[in-house]
Amino acid sequence: MDLGFTFLLVANGILIGLMYALIALGFVLVYKATDAINFAQGEFVMAPGIVAAVVAGAANSFWLGAAVAVAAMIGFSFLLERTVLRPLLGRPVIAVIMATIGLAAILRGTLPMLFGTSPLPLALPLGDEPIEVGSLTLQPAQVAGAAVALSALVIFTWFFRSNRGGVAMRAMADDQQAASAMGVNVTRYFAFAWAMAGVVSALGGVMWGAMLGVDVQLALVGLKVFPVVILGGLDSIGGAVLGGLIVGVVENLAAGYIDPLVGGGTKDFAPYVLMVAALLIRPYGMFGTRRIERV
């Protein structure tokens, strides 16, 4: 076995894995604070990706495109929370899930209507020179994506562990009624959580868009969120990182070693095999909160 080749696959897997973790972070933020499962996470990534590409193309400035995408997602999240999600507050979780599934379909349908279906380029202001680290050759977009992902993950880990707002959000997810009896303004934090998820998703959309190009297909990376969060735990940021890394590495190893034997395709479902196995062994993920039920 070629050790250099394995090493390359693992290194690439780690970079991709961090970018998966970034998207999963958007999902985890919402779940951690509001107990809602966002099935539109992929579309939350695609939409700002498209916005960024359109603005960046028109203004010829990557930074402006990225800034507008982030701002647009903040506005969109607040609007969504106010018009759709807040009225569903206190209703069964399935109502919010269905609303996000509907939202996903709406976003997938309307954005191509507005901006066309042809893929748009979105180039990071980095150049195309591959980065050489020892014997490894890495793509600059991947390295930048991993760096952005890592910073976002560190910031939000700190936020939920030590910040007053983060602790209030954890409490709110645990028991909304008790949290409001402690003076926590539940509706405000609810909106705040969705806005944070919007920011993270926008970063994800820009970085993934820079790597893959931007069109409706970008929403498909959202599907990878599920193996990531099931492996790591729905409400754990650390879990999202580890889940992302596992999914990234497993995917790359499958592509490098199994695909040539069977003619391809295992890369795409290998993470889901792991996900199903994880559900059977540790249904709350590796780091998720174990719910203790007293009977």
Binding site: N163, R164, F192, R291
Partner: peptide
């Protein structure tokens, strides 16, 4: 209705929420 995921200290600390003057953004 305790917050099961938080420690005893964090649960009680959360009761201080209304007295914390530094807002969320400010505290960041």
């Amino acid at each position: 209705a305790l917050f099961g995921g938080l420690t005893v200290l964090d649960n009680i600390l959360l009761g201080r929420h209304v007295h914390m003057r530094a807002g969320v953004l400010k505290s960041v």
